[in-house]
Deep mutational scan, measured.
Amino acid sequence: HMTFVALYDYVASGETDLSFKKGERLQIVNNTEGDWWLAHSLTTGRTGYISSNYVAPSD
C-alpha cells in the first residue's frame, strides 16, 4: 500500500469519511475511484474515505 501524509486537518462530513489531522500518516487502500480515496490511518487505526487533495506522498 502507498503511504501518504495529511497536509491539512480534515473533519469527516459523513459516516464513510475519515477524519484526520495534519501530519497524520495514511495508507491508501483504494485510489481508483476518482478524487475520494479509501484510506487507513496509521495513527488512529480507522478506515474511511479521504479527499486526495488533502494528502501528499510521504516518500
Rank of each mutant, 00 (worst) to 15 (best):
H1T: 12
H1F: 14
H1G: 14
H1E: 11
H1M: 13
H1R: 11
H1V: 13
M2C: 14
M2T: 11
M2A: 09
M2N: 09
T3E: 12
T3A: 06
F4M: 09
F4P: 00
F4V: 13
F4H: 04
F4N: 00
V5S: 03
V5Q: 04
V5W: 05
V5E: 06
V5T: 08
A6S: 05
A6K: 00
A6R: 00
A6V: 12
A6H: 00
A6Y: 02
L7W: 04
L7H: 02
Y8P: 00
Y8T: 08
Y8K: 08
Y8M: 11
D9M: 08
D9V: 04
D9S: 06
D9H: 04
D9Y: 03
D9P: 03
D9R: 01
Y10K: 04
Y10N: 05
Y10Q: 02
V11L: 08
V11K: 08
V11M: 10
V11H: 10
A12P: 04
A12D: 01
A12W: 02
A12T: 04
S13Y: 09
S13A: 11
S13M: 13
S13P: 07
S13W: 08
S13F: 10
G14Y: 11
G14E: 12
G14H: 13
E15R: 08
E15Q: 10
E15A: 12
E15V: 10
T16S: 13
T16Y: 14
T16V: 08
T16A: 12
T16E: 12
T16G: 14
D17R: 13
D17F: 15
D17M: 15
D17C: 15
D17K: 12
L18V: 05
L18H: 01
L18S: 01
L18A: 04
L18P: 04
L18F: 07
S19R: 03
S19Q: 05
S19D: 06
S19V: 04
S19E: 06
S19P: 04
S19I: 05
S19H: 03
F20Q: 00
F20D: 00
F20H: 01
F20Y: 07
K21Q: 11
K22N: 02
K22R: 09
K22Q: 08
K22V: 07
G23K: 01
G23E: 01
G23Y: 03
E24N: 01
E24P: 00
E24A: 04
R25S: 07
R25E: 10
R25W: 12
R25M: 15
R25Q: 12
R25A: 08
R25T: 13
R25V: 15
L26N: 00
L26P: 00
L26T: 01
Q27K: 11
Q27N: 07
Q27H: 11
Q27C: 15
Q27G: 03
I28L: 08
I28E: 00
I28W: 02
I28D: 00
I28R: 06
I28C: 11
I28T: 03
V29P: 04
V29A: 06
V29E: 06
V29H: 15
V29R: 06
V29G: 04
V29L: 15
N30G: 15
N30M: 10
N30H: 10
N31R: 14
N31G: 14
N31H: 11
N31T: 13
T32V: 10
T32P: 09
T32E: 09
T32A: 10
T32H: 09
T32S: 12
E33H: 12
E33D: 13
E33C: 14
E33P: 07
G34V: 08
G34L: 07
G34Q: 10
G34Y: 07
G34N: 08
G34E: 08
D35R: 09
D35T: 13
D35C: 13
W36S: 08
W36A: 07
W36V: 12
W36H: 09
W37A: 02
W37S: 01
W37E: 00
W37K: 03
W37P: 01
L38Y: 09
L38A: 01
L38Q: 04
L38F: 10
L38D: 10
L38H: 02
A39D: 01
A39H: 00
H40Y: 15
H40N: 07
H40K: 15
S41G: 02
S41M: 01
S41P: 00
S41E: 01
S41D: 02
S41H: 05
S41K: 01
L42V: 07
L42K: 04
L42H: 05
L42C: 12
L42Y: 06
L42Q: 05
T43K: 07
T43I: 08
T43S: 11
T43G: 05
T44L: 02
T44E: 01
T44S: 09
T44K: 01
T44H: 02
T44P: 00
G45W: 03
G45A: 03
G45R: 05
R46H: 07
R46L: 12
R46M: 11
R46F: 07
R46P: 00
T47C: 12
T47M: 09
T47A: 05
T47N: 05
G48Y: 03
G48E: 01
G48T: 02
G48D: 00
G48C: 05
G48W: 04
G48F: 05
G48I: 02
G48Q: 02
Y49I: 06
Y49E: 03
Y49G: 01
I50M: 03
I50E: 00
I50Y: 01
I50K: 00
I50Q: 00
I50S: 00
I50N: 01
I50H: 00
S51P: 15
S51H: 15
S51K: 15
S51D: 13
S52L: 10
S52V: 09
S52D: 02
S52P: 15
S52A: 13
S52M: 13
N53T: 12
N53M: 14
N53D: 12
Y54N: 07
Y54R: 05
Y54K: 06
Y54E: 03
Y54I: 06
Y54S: 13
V55A: 05
V55G: 04
V55N: 03
V55C: 06
A56V: 14
A56T: 13
A56N: 06
A56L: 11
A56Y: 09
A56P: 04
P57E: 08
P57A: 10
P57R: 10
P57M: 10
S58L: 15
S58P: 08
S58F: 15
S58D: 14
S58I: 15
S58Q: 12
D59R: 09
D59K: 09
D59H: 13
D59L: 12
